[in-house]
């Protein structure tokens, strides 16, 4: 079976592209798929750290493109899962080392042996973004519920439409239920109203995400008892075509629901 190439991009930096790429790759691999995740952020690689694979890198993407290594040699196997591989970015080069056609070629070579190829795009809309979306069958846009991130996401959606790569699907990351409730953050509905693309998932803001990234063990490895971990697995299942209900109610938090219930009760009496 030929793999699906899924590019994760955002326009704005720091919205959680790499975190989501790592977690979705882990979640897909945990459900038995053969996954390669490609770090396309040449010169600023982070994905290897988040997956805890930094010390096992020998060759990288640019080595493959420039013929210093075969593709198989450059793939780093994540031993915690039987079928999860990382193709790391080069740290000592920059985006100009990769052309869109190179990425298409690399992905075509990987397609035979795998089910999913996730590409973690760099921030921005320049060369790095261009080559990251070149081989994509599907694109996931990551945004945060804040005006700047949504504006940049809108720009990226426009570029993707112009490239005829769409329709892109949306992940809203870092939703803080308390702030949404207080009206201090854009709500999910506001974001969707503006971007007008399909939502494939929402991820609540949780300190555990950061802690697990620092430890090199993505949260998706142990999703039990944490909403964000479940959110990643839900998105992975939706990518596989399953119809998984959204966690929208729970995004309010259990306490919030309780409060609103109490308030509603109070008003009626």
């Amino acid at each position: 079976m030929a793999a699906r190439v899924i590019t994760i991009t955002s326009g704005k930096g720091g919205v959680g592209k790499t975190t989501i790429a790592a977690n979705l790759s882990v979640a897909l691999a945990m459900s038995g798929h053969r996954v390669v995740v490609i770090d396309a952020d040449v010169g600023l690689r982070n994905l290897d750290m988040m997956l805890g694979l930094e010390n096992r890198i020998v060759y990288d993407l640019v080595d493959v493109i420039e013929g210093r290594s075969r593709l198989r040699q450059a793939l780093v196997h994540d031993k915690r899962l039987p079928e999860l591989f990382l193709l790391p970015a080069a740290q000592t080069r920059d985006k100009s080392a990769v052309q869109p056609a190179d990425m298409v070629r690399v992905c075509d070579e990987l397609r035979e042996q795998h089910d999913y190829i996730m590409i973690d795009s760099p921030a921005g809309i320049e060369q790095g973004f261009r080559y990251a979306i070149a081989p994509a069958d599907e694109i996931l846009i990551i945004t945060n519920p804040e005006v700047a991130a949504v504006r940049d996401a809108d720009r990226v959606v426009g570029l993707i439409e112009a490239e005829e790569k769409g329709p892109a699907r949306l992940i809203i990351n870092r939703i803080n239920p308390d702030m949404v409730r207080r009206g201090e953050m854009l709500g999910i509905a506001d974001v969707i109203e503006l971007l007008a693309i399909d939502l494939i998932g929402t991820v609540p803001e949780e300190p555990d995400i950061l802690v697990s990234a620092n430890r090199g063990r993505p949260l998706a490895f142990s999703p039990d008892g944490c909403l964000a971990g479940q959110a990643f697995h839900n998105i992975a299942r939706r990518l596989q075509g399953e119809d998984v209900p959204f966690l929208t109610l729970r995004e309010q938090g259990m306490l919030g629901r309780l409060f609103s219930f109490v308030r509603a009760g109070g008003e009626s009496s």
């Binding site: 504006r151 940049d152 809108d154 720009r155 959606v157 426009g158 570029l159 439409e161 503006l194 007008a196």
Partner: peptide
């Protein structure tokens, strides 16, 4: 279609957009 951030539409005559004109467009 919807005009998104960064997109620019110029025309010497009249323009009808069936869709939104988002901020930044």
């Amino acid at each position: 279609r919807t005009l998104r951030s960064g997109q620019s539409l110029r025309h010497p005559g009249h323009v009808v957009v069936v869709g939104d004109v988002n901020p930044g467009a």
